[in-house]
């Protein structure tokens, strides 16, 4: 077996050490939410619970995030009208959560649909932490 050159090993080490989801635009979105929420970190566990739960405050057609996004977030979901939704997991869809306007627009719409209210910055951050951890 050929021994890899030093630069190759170094490059590999950097790739392995970098969190899978790292992206400056997404980090900026998450950092802004941390400031708004007044916290230093978000909980993927809390985000998971909120995302997978069945709620009753919103519209009866959409009791959960999973109504449209499904429970396997590395696979795509489907809107109620039958249109495919790209996977939510950052690991398989690295473009996710990198456009702040898009993130805000869909949180506003979908939290209203599912919860009957907007999500708090803490809830948004927790959900993004969850979806980035998958």
């Amino acid at each position: 077996m050929k021994i890899p050159s030093k630069p190759t090993i170094l490059a590999l080490a950097i790739i392995l050490a970098t969190p899978l989801a790292a992206n400056p635009a997404r980090d900026a979105i998450i950092n802004a939410l941390k400031q708004q929420a007044g916290v230093s970190s978000f909980s993927a566990e809390e985000g998971k619970a909120l995302f997978l739960a069945t709620h009753s405050g919103g519209k009866p057609e959409t009791p959960s995030c999973t109504t449209c996004h499904g429970t396997n977030l590395k696979a795509g979901g489907k809107t109620r009208a039958g249109k495919p939704i790209e996977p939510m997991a950052v690991s398989v869809n690295p473009q996710r959560y990198t456009d702040p306007a898009k993130v805000e627009k869909w949180f506003r719409r979908n939290c209203n649909s599912v919860l009957g209210r907007e999500c708090t910055p803490l809830e948004k951050g927790n959900i993004l932490a969850y979806l980035s951890s998958l």
């Binding site: 519209k59 009866p60 057609e61 959409t62 109620r80 627009k105 506003r108 719409r109 979908n110 209203n112 649909s113």
Partner: peptide, 11 residues
């Protein structure tokens, strides 16, 4: 649009 066939589709 805020109640668009059971979803919030507002802009």
């Amino acid at each position: 649009l805020s109640d668009h066939f059971g979803e919030d589709a507002s802009l």
